[in-house]
């Protein structure tokens, strides 16, 4: 029975190495999920900024009075997203309907709206993708960290009971190491929650903007159809 408490490495690495393997596993998992969350956050932030700029530029061009045929010819060869993708999809359907003298205009309006709807869904999916990861980490991170803490405190109490020594110097390192797991959990969960809220609001805003454009464009095409057939 050595009465003297062993010298304890209180550095973060020391805390990590002393931890029980369950706590280690929790810590590593939380750090990886934090890395993943931040990767998603950075990606999404860039994606939304790009999408917003893209929409602004397209709207400017679209309402500048340029002919739709010309715009279509410019954009068609490129790979497009968001609003230009809506425009291309609708225009392609329109073109096909008048190609080769075929006059399949009876339900053209319906078909264009369907195509627009599908494209909007696809775009929103692209914007929303992987946001659920943030939500999951945000809500489950603290619990996972807490689990590590509870486990760590449990094992440290077991070792206290085994060593029959209750001085604070013996109790403290185990508890510090266990609380470290909760700290990492919060470290991962807080940004995930904040950015999840911010990004879901952003997605809703961009989706309503796409829907607004789709309605306007289908109104324009509907007028064109009526003029041509009328």
């Amino acid at each position: 029975m050595e009465a003297a408490a062993p010298v304890i490495d209180m550095s973060l690495w020391g805390l990590f190495m002393q931890a029980h393997f369950v706590v280690k596993f929790v810590m590593v998992g939380l750090i990886l999920s934090s890395v993943w969350c931040w990767a998603i956050i950075i990606d999404k932030y860039m994606l939304y900024a790009r999408t917003r700029r893209n929409m602004d530029r397209f709207e400017k061009v679209f309402w500048s009075g340029q002919s739709l045929e010309e715009l279509y010819r410019n954009l068609a060869p490129r790979q497009t997203t968001s609003m230009p993708a809506l425009f291309i999809a609708a225009m392609r359907e329109w073109k096909r309907s008048f190609e080769g003298g075929s006059k399949a205009v009876a339900s053209l309006q319906m078909r264009i709206e369907k195509v627009l709807d599908v494209t909007i869904q696809r775009e929103i999916e692209r914007l929303e993708g992987r946001l659920l990861v943030l939500a999951t980490v945000g809500s489950a991170g603290p619990f996972i960290g807490l689990f590590g803490t509870v486990w760590g405190i449990m094992t440290s109490f077991q070792s206290i009971a085994a060593s029959k020594n209750t001085s604070l110097a013996v109790v403290a390192p185990g508890i510090a190491e266990a609380l470290f797991a909760t700290a990492i959990g919060l470290f991962a969960a807080i940004p995930a929650t904040i950015f999840y809220n911010k990004f879901s609001a952003e997605v809703a805003k961009q989706a309503s903007r796409l829907e607004g454009f789709a309605d306007e464009f289908s109104a324009i095409l509907s007028r064109q159809i009526d003029e041509r057939t009328g």
Binding site: S11, L12, W13, I31, S34, V35, W36, C37, W38, A39, I40, I41, I42, D43, K44, M46, L47
Partner: peptide
């Protein structure tokens, strides 16, 4: 494109952890 975020995030985490350990 996803690489950008992953790389930036990993680098940042390694930096933060290194700072914390030191």
């Amino acid at each position: 494109m996803p690489n950008t975020g992953t790389v930036v995030s990993s680098v940042a985490h390694v930096a933060v952890l290194a700072y914390a350990v030191v």
